[in-house]
Design a protein around this nucleic acid. Structure first.
Lengths: 175, 175
DNA sequence: CGCCACGTTCAACAAAAATTGAACGGATAT
DNA sequence: ATATCCGTTCAATTTTTGTTGAACGTGGCG
């Protein structure tokens, strides 16, 4: 296959409706990006892959023209590590093709565990430090502050308790 | 009251233990800051106010030396708007003093509503656009894509359903 | 009234995060 | 072997976000 032929293949006309759909999907994920704390480029990538009926090659993705080669490479790696996309081997060509992997559900679950669990762990040790700092305070102050600290602790426990609930909940129904 | 006298008052010795406690509280909130999506300076401010047994004046807060006048001013405004702190009038002096306002619970609740609700609303309209883009696609493609779209919708509904649950849950128990 | 203390605003600055592209390395075809 | 195609890496750059401080009101006090 000559370079030229491959080039044509990559640029194969995508109908306006397909392009429109892709753009809408990309927008959707870009919106969601900051909630999930991922850079925009990663959201764009995922949108492109998610919106494609067939698996896409690196070249095809890059050909969308939104992102530089470097960003595509890094972004795909991030998505693979997150389990958001996977590689499938192409029948004809040797190059790998990308397609969405885990369902939303698992992705979100993983997100919850990683981001929130870490946060909670950090919080816990901070609270320990506070606990320890408390006894040295004068009486008058200690009272108010102890109650504030309790607020923090109570909040922390609730957050921890909520997590498994959310987990369970997200398992319900197909998705 | 001469400036000098006031100055002394502001710098009144805070015992090492009080300072230590404050630092620990500040650290706690700084940690939490990025989860909540607020800038560090705001977290620091809230920590300072939260860790203080008495309400603090603008000058006292600034005297902690961590933040510039501008940041203190802006940050206090943000916190007031969030309902995280409130002003109480000082008995002696005319200047206003700051103290924590809403309990954690309400703050978090508000946070959930503002950040997530907005997100969900945006998502909803995006999904509408996708819905509309779908019918124009060819058969072969439409099948896969329709199913992907359904995934998105299902996810969206679940998130929406989870919100009230979280709300209820956070109301349980004092805090 | 004019001065001063107190806060606010906002344009300049600094820090952090994301993006790019040029240099590199490994695999395949010639 | 050598050339070439693909993709990765990473330092430089751009963009975004947060912070600062100087200039500017505002209200109280002499």
């Amino acid at each position: 296959m000559t370079p030229k032929a491959r080039d044509l293949l990559q640029k194969q006309e995508r109908s306006a409706s397909v392009v429109g759909f892709e753009e809408a999907v990309v927008d959707f994920f870009v919106d969601a990006a900051d909630l999930l704390g991922v850079p925009k480029s990663v959201a764009v990538l995922y949108g492109i892959v998610f919106a494609s009926p067939q698996p896409l090659s690196f070249a095809e993705i890059q050909a969308r023209g939104t992102l530089s080669k470097g960003s595509v490479s890094q972004g795909l790696r991030v998505l693979r590590e997150m389990g958001a996309i996977k590689e499938v081997s192409a029948p004809a060509d040797r190059s790998e093709l990308f397609t969405p992997d885990l369902e939303m559900r698992r992705l979100i679950q993983r997100f919850l565990e990683q981001r929130l669990e870490k946060q909670l762990a950090a919080g816990k040790s901070r609270l320990g430090a506070l606990q320890r700092a408390l006894p040295d305070l004068e009486k008058s102050h200690a009272e108010t502050l102890r109650s504030r600290l309790e607020q923090l602790q109570s909040w922390h426990e609730k957050a921890r308790a909520l997590l498994p609930i959310a987990r369970t909940f997200l398992k319900l129904a197909p998705g």
